[in-house]
């Protein structure tokens, strides 16, 4: 669930209030306010759309987690997406491998299971 909006990075543009699919945030005087945490689905969309890298979403979607250091994680999801790069930058060039890699995992599991059955 969304854990922190860092006041020293946030410029209060309210983009996170706009884009949150479950309307967790309200406008605030200095930074947006987490008003409905119980509606947060831990989808990271607020982080992805925050061009100041000012938001940290904690990974547990069922419980509030205390005390993690957000700094190493700020902006990582955004950079991994290549979210701000132009359309021709090729950052989705690996995407075609998704299906084959899913299939490769399924094959690995099936072969391993077969081999174990034979050895029993």
């Amino acid at each position: 669930m969304i854990a922190q909006i860092l006041a020293d990075k946030c410029n209060n543009c309210a983009q996170c209030v706009n884009v949150c699919p479950t309307f967790v945030l309200d406008d605030g005087p200095h930074v947006p306010v987490v008003a409905r945490l119980d509606a947060c689905q831990t989808c990271y969309m607020c982080e992805l759309y925050c061009d100041q890298d000012a938001i940290y979403v904690a990974p547990d979607q069922f419980a509030v987690e205390p005390g993690a250091d957000p700094l190493p994680h700020l902006g990582v999801i955004r950079r991994d997406h290549g979210w701000d790069r132009p359309g021709e930058a090729g950052h989705l060039d690996e995407y075609r491998k998704l299906g084959p890699l899913l299939g490769a995992g399924v094959e690995i599991a099936a072969r391993r299971y077969q081999a174990q059955r034979r050895s029993v």
Partner: peptide
């Protein structure tokens, strides 16, 4: 898991590593 997946998982599905790394 397939060896080829490890280095590129974050480029294919950038949301997936986050719940682990965090």
């Amino acid at each position: 898991a397939p060896e080829a997946l490890r280095p590129i998982l974050r480029h294919i599905q950038p949301f997936t590593p986050a719940p682990f790394e965090r």
